[in-house]
Amino acid sequence: MSFNIDRVVTSLRNARSVLPRTVDKTGRVLPLPSPRAVSEAISDLTSSLFPRRFGGARANSNEALDYFVGHTLGRALDVLQGQVIRELAFTASLSSEGLVDADQTSRVIVQEFADSLPAILEVLYTDVRAAYDGDPSAKSQDEVLLSFPGVRAIIYHRLAHALYKLDLPIIARIIAESSHSQTGIDIHPGAEIGGSFFIDHGTGVVIGETAIIGERVRLYQAVTLGAKRFSVDENGALVKGQPRHPIVEDDVVVYAGATILGRVTIGRGSVIGGNVWLTRSVPPGSNIVQAQARSDVFDSGAGI
């Protein structure tokens, strides 16, 4: 049995025509960053950061390990540069300035990202330690690193956030969504997160773009740090980039199912109980729990 493929192809072409194409000044259609290529680069970057755990390196000397890291990192940065060129070309197509030297600009950006990796690794060590210290079921830091979804999510986030700060929001978002699909944890790459961060269990956690999280913060599953409302302009279009997500100060614990919305501040050392719905700031040291239902019985008019 044969199929009328030509008819379907023609219909698909007509359907695509409603979407605007990204073209340069000559009318050439621009390629966008490839999620597959970005995922390959992030896999190699993770192996470069943790060569024995994720890279499978068996080197017995620092020199041999350095060779493995250098080779793997170089491959990752080459792939990443190609994707950066694509994003720069796309961004330039949206403005009147254009892109002068994509190769040189991308090389500078990727080198700056590479230079930030040692600092990222130092912070990640604090995240791994926080996960190990914060979970009584964890038997070793290696177990935490290799198997905890919250740790994988923060590894991806710290890499994505570094690229986000280098004005590469598409690549950063691709990394974030890759992490989201693997872990069930949705962290926007714009969110600022301090060290020793731990997400326990993790499924359903959502952290918005403009959220700011301090040091030694712990979140449990299904926690939302979201926006309460979205501002619109005179034409009814959403105003983008405004601070609209919570600020969570140092040493805060937020238990499962809690929802914190808007540009509110959760003071240092506070504990937010499970399933709490919070849309106001709370001072340091607060202990916020759900309101409990009360049932009073008045006999013979007592108390009235």
Rank of each mutant, 00 (worst) to 15 (best):
N275V: 05
A160Q: 04
I5Y: 14
R13W: 07
Y67R: 14
R229P: 00
D66S: 15
E215N: 14
A256K: 05
F54R: 06
L49G: 00
G27P: 03
E122L: 14
N60G: 13
S196K: 08
L49R: 00
S17H: 13
L49E: 01
L32W: 10
F113G: 04
N275E: 03
E112T: 14
V264S: 07
T22L: 15
V289P: 01
D101I: 09
Y220I: 04
S231W: 12
M1V: 13
I199L: 03
A176P: 00
S47P: 00
L163W: 02
D127I: 01
F3A: 11
E215H: 14
V8W: 11
Q104G: 10
M1L: 14
L146A: 10
G269D: 05
L261D: 02
D24R: 05
V282T: 06
P284R: 11
S39P: 00
P243R: 10
H201A: 07
Q290I: 12
I207P: 00
R107N: 10
S295D: 11
P51V: 02
S147H: 13
E215A: 10
D186M: 05
I170C: 05
T46K: 13
I109E: 01
F197I: 06
A160W: 02
G269W: 02
K25N: 12
T46H: 10
I187L: 08
P284C: 05
L219P: 02
L124I: 13
E87V: 04
P246S: 07
E143I: 04
A59D: 14
A89D: 04
D251L: 05
V252R: 02
G257T: 09
P31H: 11
N4L: 12
D66C: 07
T259A: 10
H188W: 01
Y156S: 11
E87T: 03
E97C: 09
A258Q: 01
L238T: 15
F197C: 03
P149Y: 03
S231D: 15
N235S: 14
V108D: 14
R28H: 12
L238N: 06
E112H: 11
L88A: 08
L166N: 04
